[in-house]
């Protein structure tokens, strides 16, 4: 248990990780992330990479939807912009992958700003519809433009880093994991400063945000830019990971997947984006495992997997909305609070 706050200056109180336990857990997680590629099988590494990509994208959506309160169903479409940018650059210019990723992020940020322009006038459901419209437009462009390879899409060569070809989960892990970690750290930092606070202010009470000197349109567009930049980076990582980008790689269902991830994880918390994305990525795996267990007794189990998966996703969203609207992050906070006073109060 924690007996008190023993900080002596404001810098310590403003730190991102302020308790010893938090620092220990963080160190453990980092050590785990470094050791994982040497211990896990390629399949588990594949899953870890997929989780990391989804964490990056969900964190981006969380900035826009969870923190700024602007509901977007365009996250998958934004990812496709990043993925195509990276694929085109890799195929035609062969520039280093970090540069391509950055270009993917920036291009997507510009697209995000354009999509975000209606957000000053429309909110909530209407904005969500506007972002769906943007997704449809982007899908149309990608499936008809020669540069993006039409319906066939693009297949791209693997990334190279100092002569190492990154085509196996082991190498890709070292690209995807650090980038995701930096992105999450950036998001966490953002909400320690005036910019992040302005986003939350717009979500909670836009009128008083204005009175405090926060220009709404500028900050809403900034939120769109950051969020879609994150989506673009995640899309770029995705492109390097799968190396085939088609218009069907990022269907609207994926946007709903990310929205579900932040609802399940906890809207408006960094931890929520991480937990939600990992959870939602792992649910199909758990189901697959479960189906494997019942196959001896019920041979059709594997065939039922796809429809069951959709039902389970739906049930999870509804269940979390009703029983745990603050998501997994709130469960984690409850556990922490319990141990703050343990064993004196149980």
């Amino acid at each position: 248990m924690r007996i008190g706050t023993l900080k002596t200056d404001y810098a310590a109180d403003e730190a991102l990780f302020d308790t010893g336990l938090q620092k220990c857990l963080l160190a453990l997680a980092l050590a785990g992330a470094v050791l994982l590629p040497f211990l896990a099988s390629p399949y588990w590494l594949f899953l870890a990479c997929l989780c990391a990509i989804n964490v990056a994208s969900a964190t981006g959506l969380n900035i826009l939807t969870g923190y700024t309160g602007l509901v977007s169903l365009g996250q998958a479409a934004f990812m496709s912009v990043g993925a195509y940018t990276v694929a085109v650059l890799e195929i035609h210019l062969g520039t280093p992958f970090l540069l391509n990723l950055l270009a993917g992020g920036l291009t997507t940020a510009l697209v995000g700003i354009a999509v975000g322009i209606p957000s000053l006038r429309v909110k909530g459901l209407y904005l969500a519809i506007a972002t769906i419209a943007a997704s449809v437009v982007l899908h149309f462009i990608f499936s008809h433009w020669a540069l993006t390879g039409g319906v066939q899409g693009l297949s791209m060569p693997p990334a190279r880093f100092f002569g190492v070809t990154m085509d196996q989960p082991f190498q890709l892990y070292w690209m995807i994991m650090p980038v995701t970690m930096l992105m999450v750290l950036g998001a966490a930092n953002l909400f320690r400063t005036r910019v992040g606070r302005a986003f939350i202010a717009i979500r909670d009470r836009d009128i008083s945000a204005e009175v405090l000197g926060i220009p709404l349109l500028r900050y809403k567009l900034m939120s769109f830019a950051v969020s879609s930049c994150y989506a673009g980076l995640a899309g770029g990582l995705w492109a390097y990971f799968f190396r085939v980008v088609t218009p069907e790689s990022f269907p609207l269902v994926n946007s709903i997947f990310y929205l579900a991830a932040i609802i399940v994880g906890g809207m408006g918390t960094i931890l929520g984006g991480i937990l939600g994305a990992i959870f939602m990525t792992m649910v199909p795996e758990v189901l697959k495992f479960g189906a494997g267990l019942v196959t001896p007794f019920y041979p059709d189990a594997l065939a039922l997997l796809a429809p069951v998966r959709t039902i389970v996703f739906g049930a999870l969203i509804v269940g979390f909305l009703i029983f745990e609207p603050q998501g997994l992050a709130e469960i984690w906070r409850r556990i922490r609070r319990f141990f703050h006073l343990w064993p004196f109060k149980t």
Binding site: V195, G196, M222
Partner: peptide
């Protein structure tokens, strides 16, 4: 005066 990029890096 903190801008977006400053904020991400803190």
């Amino acid at each position: 005066r903190t801008g977006l990029l400053d904020a991400l890096v803190y």
